[in-house]
Design a binder for these strands. Structure first.
Length: 243
DNA sequence: TATAATGTTTGAAC
DNA sequence: AGTTCAAACATTAT
């Protein structure tokens, strides 16, 4: 389910409930949902893979993790983790992490780190990258404080697109190439958004979960890479390793 | 049917 | 004290 663009879709999909009052809250989350009764939703936001339901003085943070799902004006047979009912409908979340935040979200979240946000700053991302010169690019792209919203699919597709081997070291990647990676992290994420909305995302994958290179046709390498130990799909022929 | 997968946090172990 | 790692969570398609 997750990766930033999917959370943008969720945020757009619930807009009809902005300004609505919760008339019933339920679910098996351990958070104290009794406080939600009669509370009015100020806004819905997203920061990378975080979905935020903003009330006066507090915010509910939903993270779908790997398996989380949601339904709008529908229910799944399985028990909801969090269910919010309004006069005109309901939102239900399943198998997700739910956390109430009481601090000011503008202090918690660096909006310039979110590749989907208007305030995304490629410059800041670049300077954060320069602070971890020894890291592998496959790990850096998954670093949410740098590329909030980027997940394993976007990682693999961006690296294929810019022809960089996932195990390349940050300090060995030429500056122009590093800038290209930062730039494509955002560009690809928005294409992901469009394709996901059109239900054609998988069709557009060129590397992720693919057998052969879309460029040269040779078999792709599929290995677990980086300290984060996530799978990478890459072409040893087309993607250059900067070591 | 067993496996693997778009993710993150926690706490034990070193 | 800082780092690393496995475990835990939980769902569904193949």
């Amino acid at each position: 389910m997750p990766e930033g663009p999917s959370i943008v879709i969720l945020t757009e999909a619930v807009q009809e409930f902005t300004g609505q009052t919760v008339i019933a809250a339920g679910g098996n989350t351990k958070e104290d949902i009794s406080i939600l009764d009669s509370k009015r939703i100020i806004s819905f936001k997203s920061w990378g893979k975080h979905f935020l339901i903003c009330f006066d003085h507090f915010t509910i943070r939903i993270h779908l993790m790997l398996f989380g799902t949601y339904r709008i004006n529908e229910q799944k047979p399985s028990p909801a983790r969090l269910s919010l009912k309004f006069g005109s409908g309901e939102i239900n979340f399943y198998a997700c992490s739910v956390k109430f935040l009481t601090d000011d979200i503008n202090k918690i979240y660096d909006w310039t780190a979110d590749v989907m946000n208007d305030r995304w700053s490629p410059r800041k991302a670049l300077s954060k990258l320069r602070k971890i010169p020894d890291a592998e690019i496959c790990d850096a792209l998954l670093e949410q404080e740098i590329f909030s919203g980027v997940g394993n699919i976007i990682k693999n597709e961006v690296l294929f697109r810019v022809r960089v081997h996932p195990e390349s070291k940050i300090n060995a990647i030429p500056a122009t190439k590093l800038r290209e990676i930062v730039r494509q992290a955002r560009i690809y994420s928005f294409e992901f958004l469009d394709w996901k909305k059109a239900f054609t995302l998988k069709k557009h994958w060129l590397a992720h979960a693919k057998r052969n290179c879309a460029n040269c046709g040779r078999p792709l390498t599929k290995t677990v890479t980086g300290r984060k130990k996530r799978r990478s799909f890459y072409c040893l022929n087309c993607q250059k390793a900067y070591l």
